[in-house]
Amino acid sequence: MDIRPIRTEADYKATLKTVSPYFDQEPAPGTEDADRFEVLLALIQSYESKNHPIDPPDAIEAIKFRMEQQGLSAKDLEPFIGQLNRVYEVLNHKRPLTLRMIRRIHKGLGIPAEVLIQTENDDKFSLAA
C-alpha cells in the first residue's frame, strides 16, 4: 500500500482521483482495498479540515431550515422566542437571539447550540437570560 501524506492541493486532487472509483464500487470490508480506501478517506478528511474548513450555518438560516424540515410556521416558534412580532424580528435579523432563546431553541428544535450562539455581529448579541 503506497500511501503518502496530503501536503499540497495537487496531492489532495490526486488522492480524490484515487478514491473516486471506490465510491462507485465500495470494496468489501477487510480487504486491502477497503483498508486503503479507509486510510485515504482519513487523510482527505484531515487535509480538508485544515485547508477547506466549512463554516457553520447562520443561526437564523439554521432555524429556518429546521422550520422547513418540520413544517413549522413562525407561530410555532413562539414558545422558544416569544410573541409573534418578536419571532418575525428574529427571523428577519432585526433582533438578536438571547441566551434564553438559544437554550429553548436548542432544547425544543435540536439545533446545536454552537450554531445558535455564533453571530454576524457580536456587538448586537444579547446575553440576556
Score class of each variant (00 low, 15 high):
Lys64Tyr: 03
Met67Cys: 14
Pro53Asp: 05
Thr18Ile: 13
Pro21Ser: 01
Glu9Ala: 11
Met67Arg: 08
Asn51Trp: 08
Glu48Val: 03
Asp24Pro: 01
Ala59His: 09
Gly30His: 05
Lys64Gly: 02
Lys17Val: 10
Phe65Ala: 14
Ser20Asp: 11
Lys17Ala: 15
Glu26Thr: 11
Pro57Phe: 02
His52Arg: 13
Pro21Trp: 00
Glu48Ser: 05
Leu43Val: 01
Lys50Ser: 11
Asn51Gly: 10
Ser20His: 09
Ile54His: 14
Leu41Glu: 01
Glu26Lys: 13
Asp11Phe: 01
Lys64Ser: 07
Leu41Val: 10
Leu41Thr: 05
Ser46Glu: 10
Val39Lys: 07
Phe23Pro: 02
Thr8Ala: 00
Ser49His: 04
Pro27Trp: 00
Leu16Phe: 02
Pro29Ala: 06
Leu41Asp: 02
Lys64Leu: 15
Glu9Trp: 15
Tyr22Leu: 04
Glu26Val: 13
Ser49Phe: 00
Gln69Trp: 08
Ile54Val: 14
Pro53His: 11
Gly30Asp: 06
Lys50Ala: 13
Glu26Pro: 11
Leu40Asp: 02
Lys13Pro: 02
Arg66Thr: 15
Val19Phe: 03
Pro57Ser: 01
Pro57Cys: 04
Asp35Gln: 04
Ala28Asn: 05
Ile60Asp: 11
Lys64Cys: 08
Ile44Asn: 09
Glu26Ile: 08
Ala62His: 08
Glu26Leu: 13
Glu9Asp: 12
Leu40Glu: 03
Asp24Met: 13
Gln45Phe: 03
Ala34Ile: 06
Gln70Phe: 12
Glu38Phe: 00
Gln25Glu: 14
Arg36Trp: 00
Gln70Cys: 08
Pro27Ile: 01
Arg36Cys: 05
Ser49Gly: 09
Asp35Asn: 05
Pro56Thr: 13
Glu48Phe: 03
Ala42Gly: 08
Ala10Asn: 12
Tyr12Ile: 15
Ser46His: 11
Leu16Gly: 03
Glu61Met: 08
Lys64Val: 14
Gln70Ala: 15
Ser20Ala: 14
Ala28Leu: 11
Tyr12Gly: 13
Asp55Val: 06
Pro57Tyr: 01
Phe23Ile: 09
Ala34Leu: 03
Met67Trp: 06
Ala62Pro: 09
Ser46Gly: 06
Leu40His: 06
Gln70His: 07
Asp58Leu: 07
Thr15Ser: 10
Ala42Cys: 07
Phe37Gly: 01
Asp55Cys: 08
Ala42Glu: 12
Leu16Lys: 12
Lys13Cys: 05
Tyr12Ser: 09
Lys17Tyr: 06
Gln69Gly: 11
Pro27His: 07
Leu16Asp: 03
Asp24Trp: 07
Gln25Asp: 14
Lys13Tyr: 05
Glu61Asp: 14
Arg36Lys: 10
Ala34Met: 06
Asp24Gln: 14
